[in-house]
C-alpha cells in the first residue's frame, strides 16, 4: 500500500474545514464538536498506532492478551454504564464481552481462518468487541425497559406459578429481538449499501477483491453470530437481577 506522508494527512484537514464551513453556514453550532472529534480522532489513532507498533514488535502473547483485555474492558465499562439501570450491569457486560471475544477468537484461530498472531488477532478482536458492545448495551437497556413496562404481566405470570425465567420470557424475547435488529439489518445490506471497512482496507492495501471478499464473508458471519452470544449471555444474567428467591419481581426504589 502506498505510504501517506504527514503532510498529506494534514492536507486531509480540508474535509474538517468543509464540515466547519457548513456548520457555520447552517448555524448549527457544531463547530466545537467537529474540532473536538477531529482532534480526538487524530490523537487516539496516533496513540493506537504507536501501541500496535510496539506490541507487534514485542511478539509476545502476553501483550496481545493484555491489549485485548484492555479493549474488552473499555467496551464492558461503556455497556455497563449505558445499562446501569440493571443491577451488576458492569459485571454482566464484562462477562458477556470477554467470553464472546474469547470464543470468537478461539473459533477463528481454531479453524485456521486467522493465524494466532498479533497483527491478526488484535484487529479482529477489536472488530468483535466494537460490534458486541452495542449489543450488550442495547440488551441491558431493553430488558430493563420491557420488565418495567410489562410489570403487571410479569407479576401476573409469577402469581400463576411461573418461575422467574418463565415470567420474564416475553421480555427477554423482545430484548433479544430489538438488540439484534441493527446487527441483522447491517448484514442484509452489506456489499450493496456499505463496503465494510475491513474489506475496503484490504483492497486499498492491494489484496485482490475476491480474497478480500472471502475474508469479509468470514468477518460478517462472525459479526452476525457474536452479538447473539453476547446478547444471550447478557439477558440470562440480567433478568436474574430482577427476581429474588421468593419469586418476587424486585424493581427497586419507587416501584
Amino acid at each position: 500500500m502506498t505510504e501517506i506522508s504527514t503532510f498529506q494527512v494534514l492536507l486531509s484537514l480540508v474535509f474538517v474545514a468543509g464540515a466547519l464551513y457548513f456548520s457555520r453556514l447552517f448555524k448549527v453550532k457544531m463547530g466545537k464538536d467537529i474540532v473536538v472529534s477531529a482532534v480526538r480522532a487524530f490523537v487516539q489513532l496516533l496513540a493506537i498506532g504507536y501501541v500496535l507498533d510496539f506490541v507487534f514488535g514485542l511478539d509476545s502473547p502476553l501483550w496481545v492478551v493484555l491489549m485485548i483485555a484492555i479493549m474488552a474492558g473499555v467496551a464492558a465499562y461503556n455497556s455497563g454504564k449505558r445499562g446501569a439501570k440493571v443491577k451488576n450491569s458492569y459485571l454482566i457486560s464484562s462477562i458477556a464481552i470477554f467470553f464472546t471475544t474469547f470464543v470468537t477468537i478461539l473459533v477463528l484461530s481454531g479453524f485456521g481462518i486467522i493465524p494466532f498472531e498479533a497483527q491478526y488477532i488484535i484487529p479482529v478482536s477489536g472488530m468483535v468487541i466494537g460490534n458486541v458492545m452495542n449489543g450488550a448495551s442495547l440488551a441491558l437497556m431493553r430488558l430493563d425497559d420491557e420488565l418495567k413496562s410489562n410489570r403487571v404481566r410479569v407479576e401476573a405470570a409469577l402469581s400463576l406459578g411461573a418461575a422467574p425465567i418463565q415470567a420474564a420470557a416475553p421480555a427477554l424475547k423482545k430484548a433479544v429481538v430489538t438488540s439484534m435488529v441493527p446487527v441483522v439489518d447491517r448484514a442484509k445490506v452489506v456489499g450493496i449499501v456499505s463496503l465494510p471497512g475491513g474489506m475496503s482496507g484490504m483492497i486499498l492495501a492491494g489484496a485482490s477483491p475476491l480474497a478480500a471478499v472471502k475474508f469479509q464473508i468470514v468477518i460478517m458471519y462472525m459479526l452476525l453470530g457474536s452479538p447473539f452470544l453476547t446478547v444471550a449471555i447478557v439477558n440470562l444474567l440480567a433478568y436474574r437481577q430482577y427476581f429474588n428467591r421468593q419469586r418476587q419481581l424486585v424493581l427497586g426504589p419507587g416501584n
Binding site: V152, R153, E155, A156, A157, L158, S159, L160, G161, P170, Q246, R247
Partner: peptide, 18 residues
Amino acid sequence: VRDLRNKVGFMFQEAALF
C-alpha cells in the same frame, strides 16, 4: 412460594392478560 401461589390465586386490576 409455589404451593402458596397454587392455593392463592390473584386476579389483577388491569386485565393483565398475556
